[in-house]
Design a protein around this nucleic acid. Structure first.
Length: 462
RNA sequence: GGCUGAGUGGCAGAGUGGUUAUGCAGCGGUUUGCAAAACCGUGUACCUCGGUUCAAUUCCGGGCUCAGCCUCCA
């Protein structure tokens, strides 16, 4: 029985889909004006893991992750670069897809773009105005926060406290400082769309309300995103959606924790971010994915080279077990282990606990000296199968363990390495251990480790 | 100031009202020409002060510390 921590209640709740057997999930995606950093990677990986697990549980999942391709920062960046906004956004959408592919993130079922949903956005704003939840002020359109009594429910805030904590200059056009913009009148030179309120473009919050309800219906199961979107973005989405449709919005809100650097949130504004492609220079993509999944999705995740190195060592261990496992392993995964795995994951997607199970499988497999045994085959199949559910262990083990990265100091190809190995094997059989050790030390100094096994000498990159 | 969340062994990171997390690193052993990999063994961990209890790291309350939100942010 799957339980999910719902930000709306602050508690783990038994998950009951609106329509039995089906799940509709919307996740706030990227604003495409720059490369994805590790914080973005976490969102992509976490919700990919969730979608995979829901499917593994037999649910028919509709997963939507939007792309924000029009906003202030996009306009500003395009101007800086002297390119059109579509040139800029297309470029970074390609980059984002490269990053997510590398991380083993499966494509969502739908990736709606804000610029392609102007009719839905404008319609929703019109409805809000008709229902007196929004007003026009100086060609902008604002949402009237006081018209929605449940405002603050998701973020645990109330409107008085928010007013007291108000730190932003009040804009004249707003009736209330808490009101937020639905439609911005175009400034000269800015891209714009025609609307009943003149040329302009949508505010950030309304696009997600319009796209989520358009793609999944007014009332859907899960809405997700980073913790920093809980307020005001998600709070505003609820207000807009509920007020325009008159129906419930998302049943369950899932927020993933931040990535930190030196105990501080990784963010653009602090400048302490590492882009995915930057980290990929040093680590294999699966190491990043493993690192992300080895802590619970709601906990903070401390980014550091040491922690990535540790993730790499742990993942190496899993792949080493698979490397030495029966090649032709076939059969059914072990039911008892699958059940244990499901119990971990049913408890609010406890991936660290699930990964501990993977390590136990690897140990049992290593312990099993008879690789042709039925047990060894079962353990192998189970380990691979559970890896699939988490989007891990999909590589060929040998390929993974021998993969080159930018931190590799050698420029040897497989043939060259094999030549060294052959030379050493010859020295060994001639009992010339000094020479054999020299060769091994030489390769080790280049980051290549040798292992003598009964089947011959094999190698890996450190 | 208001509101969240968190403080676990050298490090990372789960979990639990009394019983082994798991990983990385270390130490001892098996194995090896020596290694590596692997396996076996090895850690008297739960911020602090009170309370509840036969029993609390786990529940409750105070304190301290940290992070986040209250402005764009995944």
């Amino acid at each position: 029985m799957l339980k999910i921590h719902n930000s709306l209640s602050g508690q783990k709740e038994v998950f009951t889909p609106i329509e039995p057997g089906k799940v509709s999930m919307y996740v706030c995606g990227m604003t495409v004006y720059d490369f994805c950093h590790i914080g973005h990677a976490r969102v992509m990986v976490v919700f990919d893991m969730i979608a995979r697990y829901l499917r593994h549980s037999g649910l028919d999942v509709s997963y939507v992750r939007n792309i924000t391709d029009i906003d202030d920062k996009i306009i500003a960046r395009a101007n800086e670069n002297n390119e059109t906004i579509s040139e800029l956004t297309e470029r970074f959408i390609v980059a984002m897809n490269e990053d997510s592919d590398a991380l083993g993130v499966l494509s969502p079922d739908n990736e709606p773009k804000a610029t392609l949903h102007m009719p839905q956005i404008i319609e929703m704003i019109s409805t809000l105005i008709d229902k007196k939840h929004a007003y026009v002020g100086n060609n902008d359109v604002y949402f009237d926060v006081s018209s929605f009594e449940n405002y603050g429910r998701l973020s645990g805030k109330n409107t008085e406290e928010l007013r007291a904590g108000e730190r932003v200059e009040v804009q004249q056009e707003k009736d209330d400082p808490l009101d937020f913009v639905l439609w911005k009148a175009a400034k000269p030179g800015e891209p714009s769309w025609a609307s009943p309120w003149g040329e302009g473009r949508p505010g950030w919050h309304i696009e997600c309300s319009a796209m989520s309800t358009h793609c999944l219906g007014n009332h859907f199961d899960i809405h997700g995103g980073g913790q920093d979107l809980q307020f005001p973005h998600h709070e505003n989405e609820i207000a807009q959606s509920v007020c325009s449709t008159g129906e419930e919005f998302a049943n369950v809100w899932i927020h993933n924790g931040f990535v930190r650097v030196d105990e501080e949130k990784m963010s653009k504004s602090l400048g302490n971010f590492f882009t995915v492609r930057e980290v990929l220079q040093k680590f294999q993509p699966e190491v990043i994915r493993f690192f992300i999944l080895s802590s619970h999705y709601r906990s903070p995740l401390n980014y550091s080279i040491d922690n990535l190195e540790e993730a790499k060592s742990a993942l190496n261990g899993l792949y080493t077990a698979l490397r030495d496992a029966p090649v032709d392993a076939a059969g059914e995964p072990i039911k008892k282990t699958i059940d244990e795995f499901n119990d971990c994951m049913d408890d609010d997607f406890n991936t660290p606990k699930a990964i501990a199970l993977l390590h136990e499988l690897a140990r049992d497999l290593n312990r099993n000296s008879d690789k042709s045994s039925k047990e060894a085959a079962e353990l192998t199949v189970t380990l691979r199968y559970l890896g699939t559910v988490l989007g891990l262990l999909q590589d060929d083990p040998q390929t993974f363990l021998q993969a080159k990265s930018d931190s590799s100091t050698d420029d040897l190809d497989e043939v060259a390495i094999q030549n060294f190995i052959d030379e050493r094997v010859a020295a060994k059989s001639a009992k010339d251990y000094e020479k054999a050790d020299q060769i091994r030390d030489h390769l080790q100094s280049l980051g290549i480790s040798l292992e003598d096994t009964p089947q011959g000498t094999i190698w890996r990159r450190n």
